[in-house]
Design a protein around this nucleic acid. Structure first.
Lengths: 343, 343
DNA sequence: ATCGGTCATGTAAAGGTTTACATCGGGATG
DNA sequence: CATCCCGATGTAAACCTTTACATGACCGAT
């Protein structure tokens, strides 16, 4: 019962008095096995405590039951919530989740190539900004893959994200409803799809409200806290000050709040600030940050489900899944300061 | 060159004009192969782009190159930082990290047993509070394992954590130095080792300063935000109010701050509050929280290193590794309010 | 009674690797 | 020159599973 080495299919076969082939069939295609035999086999399995050796199975089948998830930084709190969704979905289908992070180092990405080449992962989940294996040439050798947040490479890989345009639109509509007309947009890199879509939502909102866009209040940074702080400095040096800062993500918004705080301004009374993503600390800041919630666990779940479908059916049912972004209203937005309106 | 199916050791052998055994030796025990042969083999490897099939290797060797990491909640930001350390260390030794989370559900833990039984994981990293597989009986079947934060089961499994006693001592010493004499200790479950050690540090500090302990200011909760809030309510109903709240973890401290804020008190002017762990939001709260930093990435690194040692040497070099906790002084501590001193 | 067909089961190969053991050749030693 | 030994390499078995194909029994139809 508690042998030193784990039971093999042969042990089960011997006890059930059938061949190993029958045992294998009883497990994987029970309809091909007579009822009486199936019973004997399941009893033998119970006695021996047999579980299939995944190594041997994967070797024979030519594919594993592992999904490799590669992110730029697994220490990022945004990441961990997605991981929950990914893992739950995978496990409930008998798959395991293998993780890796590149820390934006191309060399690191290459190391994960080993896992793929050595057949250790049946599928791949790629996060924003990951270009793990250098060349697009590699794409041909990639296993079934799904992107998270944004498309990977130049497409060809389906992805799951949030509707950035709609999210941005919700934010700008809130600011407009509060009475803001001069709304700065603090973005990150123009090369990022999320940036472009969010900005698109921003512009669509202004347009719908017949507010003429003002290029002088659009700032491009890199999405970091520091870049938000810098944006404030730059905007104060220009002649037109906004009454609200709409930021492409929460990190930038935090930077903006720090920058405004350093100049002695009060948020939201002097300026309104909004973010995007709803990072964990957004609710703990003072004032707490009005932002867009990314349904992270759900994104993870959908991404994994899509990948598993890909693994069995071969063809992706959809190439792009966009989830609904929810506006989270907190305390960083108020009506524009009379001080600025009066100007 | 870009064959459809990946190159096998046989392809390499054919090109290098040696046997597959020699190829295997050239890779794993190069000192047993003549220089000239080794060269031929490595050229053949370069030509074919061969990488060892991990499935076949694991099958033959009887163990995989995966480490299973099981945590109560992978969505917890504390977890992700440790994961970084774990993953870096593992990867640099050719191991992959497989993750799982139980969400404090014993049933879930059982599902991960499959991975272990099916030889898919060579080792196991267990987090605090995890009792993944029901009975201790299972311990016998567990692969080499290492605990994080606290010992697992009744011992027998080495672990890596932070020196809780010393950390608590640093906190209480700070509060004492500020002039506090009535310091409440808000704990979580008495069954947790961390609680007991931190409280031990708290009492040792009071003792060293010749401050008599007051049982009425010790509160036991469950480590959640709500429990911190509740502690405040309870303490206000008793006759002796502290001037400082020393909390067993940051969650509790956040709850205490919320509770005090709801009663209209100002921190740190009316009361001082301290935490333990330095969760990401600790620096974003207002006031920012004075707490103890857990060297999380380092803990992960050490835990994985210990496990890998265990895997190769069989015996753990140490059974307990305690890292140095650092005091992070922020803005939630000040000298005790004169209002209370005067009483 | 014979045949054809169906269903349940068994046989055996294949998947890629590692390694104990066998073999072979050559240099050192007597 | 015979012997021994050692180093380098090859042969083949083993790890455990899945599945195409073969076998055999049984049943119904002719």
């Amino acid at each position: 019962m508690s042998n030193s080495s784990p039971a093999t299919i042969e042990d089960v076969a011997r006890i059930a008095e059938v061949s190993i082939a029958t045992v294998s069939r009883a497990i994987h295609t029970p309809e091909k096995v007579a009822n009486s035999t199936r019973l004997k086999v399941s009893q033998a399995i119970a006695i021996t405590g047999y579980t299939t050796n995944a190594m041997a199975r994967s070797l024979r089948l030519g594919r594993s039951n592992m999904i490799l998830v590669v992110a730029p930084d697994i220490g990022d709190p945004n990441f961990s919530n997605i991981l929950v969704g990914l893992e739950n979905e995978a496990r409930s289908h008998g798959y395991g989740v293998l993780i890796g992070h590149t820390q934006n180092d191309a060399q690191r990405g290459l190391e994960y190539l080993k896992f793929l080449n050595s057949n250790q992962a049946a599928g791949l989940i790629l996060f924003t900004g990951i270009l793990p294996f250098g060349h697009q040439t590699m794409t041909a050798h990639l296993p079934p893959s799904v992107g998270v947040f944004e498309p990977v490479f130049n497409g060809g890989i389906p992805y799951v994200g949030v509707d950035d345009t709609e999210g941005a639109r919700k934010v700008v509509d809130l600011l407009l409803a509060e009475g803001h007309r001069k709304i700065a947009f603090i973005g990150d890199s123009r090369t990022r799809l999320a940036y472009n879509r969010r900005r698109q939502g921003y512009e669509a909102g202004l347009d719908a409200a017949h507010v003429p866009p003002d290029q002088r209040t659009v700032f491009e940074g890199d999405g970091t806290i520091e870049s938000g702080r810098l944006a404030v400095e730059q905007l104060f040096m220009r002649d037109t000050l906004p009454t609200a800062f709409m930021c492409v993500n929460d990190q930038t918004a935090i930077g903006v709040m720090i920058g405004l705080g350093a100049r002695g301004y009060d948020i939201p009374n002097d300026f309104s600030v909004t973010g995007f993503d709803d990072v964990p600390q957004a609710s703990f800041m003072s004032p707490s940050l009005t932002t867009i919630r990314q349904p992270r666990t759900l994104i993870g779940k959908h991404a994994m489900a899509l990948l598993l479908e890909l693994l069995t059916d071969g063809q992706p049912p959809e190439t792009e899944i966009l989830l609904r972004p929810d506006l989270v209203v907190r305390n960083s937005v108020a009506a524009p300061s009379r001080q600025w309106i009066r100007r």
